[in-house]
Design a protein around this nucleic acid. Structure first.
Lengths: 338, 338
DNA sequence: TTGTAAGCGTTATCAT
DNA sequence: ATGATAACGCTTACAA
């Protein structure tokens, strides 16, 4: 494998000159430049990226820690991240944790060892003190979760408010027995959404019924699994912390000949593509996925470059997307029966 | 940032000894080792990965070039890749091309410059000579496509045979006007699947009707888009080169009150999760996604390590999964009408 | 068991 | 405009 020295020798110049040509720094005589270019071609020389990175003490690589790569919600966010990263000359090293805290810690270690210039977490399972520790030695951004009090940069929607609005929407349709399938405990956004759900009920004087609150894991299967109990407990509407769970819930209804929204109304969360593919189309909270990704990456790159970041906790707008999966309680089947 | 020299100095030993402790090579007195460990702790020393990589002339990183990260088919494959890579101490650098040839070339260049130890393509848009060129300087594996004649290692199913069997299944159900929505031209697997489709028709003496053959792009929308024409051209069954396109086709039918499979039978390809989420559940060709990923990564790592690879073109087994989206032509609505 | 020192390929500083 | 050379942090012969 040819090195810069081989090129220099063949071109009859110094390595410094070759380097200047390579990096298009100018200040090189055009004849000299041509000689160098010829030598590069002749030797089929490819600059060694590792050596360059080593010398410059940077990797041009950013780690993105993702809890589940098969979830299209995350892959949409990734799209925004990659565009911004590539536009700034960075590569994205995608790390899938499968919701495993140990893996998260592994990637934190990797970054500390300068395997990457910065790191973004899409939802963290790990104790925040670990991340806080990391911020001291390395640029970090957390996306999708809002963390106050701790000095960790974040980009997210207002999960509390979004869940509040989704619940309020169902309340205003006349529903009173509204079930909620939450994300896993121990994740900040689960906590926030649960609070939003409860706050809405309280605001409208509906008693909180713990028998209508379930802990899911965001997956389709967990929506399906809890459906039976939810229905048996008399809910006329369900709000879920992910579209996948909503889809699972609806599928249970289809399999058991229960009509959505005629017999149960359903609201999801995320507005992934699936939400508009299934029938009935899902009413859901839309997160600006691409924008979350691009904004988070933008912030991280500023942090890496040591630029000033005006706002360290960015909150983006969500939106309730009304489609076909809800119906006023008044018109619903259960009501009509009486 | 503390270096190995700082640690050596504080522990009162040489850098060689620190390195030995760091890499757990043994042959270090346990007292000495303890001194080193103490110094590491005291200085909060983290070994510099780039320096190590540089010295050892490797990155422990493998590039995976993916045409579309939001496609769960690819992310499932990725799961298998990551497991094998991580088990062998490699990181996976995921590169999304969005089906852009220019981006593919970019990642080829990146690898040539030793930015990674090896590269896997999940379907290539690029001219194969570019990849062939790359194989001379760098370990390469192509997954999902079988390429004969050229000496490029591959892992895939037999796409010809799979498409043949899917088509044959429809023929045996009595269908004669069977439409096919292919993947994009210029991809080897599109070519192979199209051949399989045509071969089955020929084998059973059904004339090939070019008006029933469409070029899609694997996406949901392209299944939806071609549905009208397919139906107008009188097809009683459709085979598509991806589950997403099949889902799009079915959705068009739902939107236009056409019953699947009562009025049209549909067979997809890939067996992604969506196939069993939608109604009717999709009959489809199952690819062993995880296994394709793990096998490809396994092969690449062997290549990187310079180990012998017995078989350079691995073909894994596919399977026709029969669900709800097909029906015998005899029983179908159109037939019944007569 | 431990230490010395060369060297990986590049960039960047300082001369010329 | 060009060159000489130190330096980046680590591993690894080889020597002791």
């Amino acid at each position: 494998m040819a090195t810069i020295r081989d090129v220099a020798k063949l071109a009859g110049v110094s390595t410094a000159t070759v380097s200047r040509v390579l990096n298009e720094q100018g200040g090189v005589n055009s004849e000299t430049k041509q000689k160098v270019l010829d030598a590069i071609k002749k030797l089929n020389y490819k600059p060694n990226t590792i050596a360059k990175n080593f010398r410059q003490n940077k990797t041009d690589t950013i780690i993105v820690v993702i809890p589940d790569i098969t979830n299209t919600f995350f892959s949409k966010i990734l799209l925004g991240m990659q565009d911004v990263a590539n536009a700034n000359g960075y590569n994205v090293l995608l790390c899938n944790t499968n919701n495993d805290v140990e893996k998260e810690l592994e990637y934190i270690r990797f970054t500390e060892r300068r395997g990457a210039d910065g790191i973004i977490f899409l939802t963290a399972r790990v104790n925040y003190t670990n991340i806080l520790e990391l911020t001291k030695t390395c640029p970090v951004v957390v996306a999708c979760e809002y963390i106050d009090n701790l000095d960790i940069p974040t980009v997210s929607i207002n999960n509390f408010k979004a869940a509040y609005e989704a619940t309020e929407y169902l309340i205003k349709l006349g529903h009173k027995k509204i079930a909620y399938i939450n994300g896993p405990k121990g994740i900040v956004l689960s906590r926030d959404r649960l609070r939003g759900y409860k706050a809405a009920l309280e605001r409208y004087g509906i008693e909180i019924d713990e028998k209508l609150i379930f802990e899911g894991d965001f997956y389709y299967e967990s929506g399906y699994k809890h459906a039976k109990q939810i229905l048996e407990n008399g809910a006329s509407a369900v709000f879920t912390a992910s579209d996948d769970m909503a889809a699972g819930f609806i599928r249970y209804c289809i399999d058991n000949n229960i009509k959505v929204p005629k017999e149960v109304s359903v609201v999801g969360f995320d507005n992934i593509k699936l939400a508009s593919i299934i029938k009935p189309e899902l009413t859901t909270i839309a997160q600006p996925m691409y924008e979350i990704g691009s904004t988070a990456m933008d912030m991280l790159i500023k942090l890496i470059k040591g630029e000033e970041v005006e706002k360290r906790n960015i909150v983006l707008e969500h939106q309730l997307i009304v489609r076909e999966s809800c119906m006023p309680y008044e018109k619903s089947y259960v009501k009509t029966l009486k």
